[in-house]
């Protein structure tokens, strides 16, 4: 079975370039603006879209993404509404891969089986669940694979060669390499070190490897795009969104453009990469 994610990486391989993967929080700062932002992303140059599912206690996220989640929750966002948003996006775009990223508890409470059916019908392609390591694969990973969704795993600097096979075993779509030990929005990734790590992972898998955490600028995105199959940018976009809000934290006429403009320049960076990774 191929998903939109597989198809997109196959197209990019033909074009000989890497992917720009963007992350924003669903419902930030309100559901309507958030949907408009997501709709603007493919036109601006995003190849794969990650949408955060807001959670009160995002243990692996730094202050920017924590605040984005709280803004969304304050604006009334729920997992149900996140899936509605995906449907709204799919009405217009049936090609761009959509990945939901977040923490397990909201899905567990929604009900795993019901969630997988609803997510698949809404047009979700993959899941990244930060607090579900391979040791807990029975919870959601295996059922998700059966339901036809990709389960994208994080590999980190602490995932050594001995552990990598376990991490990769049920991973599909792509591998998300977290380039630093730390939370989102922290230190910048060193593209040389990240490149070595990507090469190490590629010795174990044929899946595309994307790199994220700490990529903020077109230059940094370009440097990573030369070493990996994709560069993931999250905090920088969330910060651009936040900076466009008014003093009460409400969206302004500048909000959608603020995010789209940064995505466009990041896309230029990625497309300017000398050569993409194999």
């Amino acid at each position: 079975m191929t998903t939109r994610i597989d198809a997109r990486f196959a197209e990019l391989a033909k074009e000989g370039r890497s992917a720009l993967v963007t992350f924003l929080m669903a419902g930030d700062p309100d559901p309507a603006t958030s949907l408009n932002i997501i709709k603007a992303l493919p036109r601006a140059g995003a190849d794969i879209i990650e949408i955060g599912m807001p959670f009160t206690d995002p243990m692996a996220d730094g202050p920017s993404i924590q605040a984005a989640g709280l803004r969304a929750l304050k604006g009334g966002m729920t997992l149900r509404k996140t899936l509605e948003m995906v449907r709204g996006f799919r009405n217009e775009d049936n090609a761009t891969p959509l990945v939901l990223m977040g923490y397990y508890n909201p899905i567990y409470i929604y009900g795993v089986d019901k969630f997988l059916i609803d997510a698949k019908t809404a047009g979700v392609d993959g899941l990244i669940i930060v607090d579900l390591p391979p040791e807990e694969d029975d919870e959601l990973c295996i059922p998700a694979l059966k339901a036809g969704l990709n389960f994208i795993r994080l590999a980190t600097p602490t995932t050594d060669d001995k552990r990598l096979p376990a991490v990769l075993a049920n991973t599909s779509g792509f591998v998300y390499y977290v380039s630093i030990t730390g939370i989102t929005g922290a230190a910048a990734a060193d593209s040389k070190v990240a490149g070595d790590a990507v090469a190490r992972i590629k010795r174990h898998t044929k899946l595309p490897v994307c790199v994220g955490f700490g990529i903020r600028t077109p230059q940094a995105a370009r440097a990573i795009a030369e070493k990996a199959n994709g560069a993931v940018v999250g905090t920088a976009l969330v910060d651009a969104l936040r900076d466009s809000l008014d003093t009460k934290g409400q969206a302004t006429t500048k909000t959608v453009a603020a995010v789209a403009d940064l995505v466009a320049s990041l896309a230029q960076g990625v497309r300017g990469a000398k050569q993409a990774a194999e």
Binding site: Y104, P133, T156, T159, D160, V178, T181
Partner: peptide
């Protein structure tokens, strides 16, 4: 051995922490 008391417990942590 997986840290379960009945259906409770477990190891729901980020991959960075799992090896540790």
């Amino acid at each position: 051995e997986r840290g379960h008391f009945g259906n409770f417990g477990g190891r729901f942590v980020a991959e960075t922490l799992m090896p540790l």
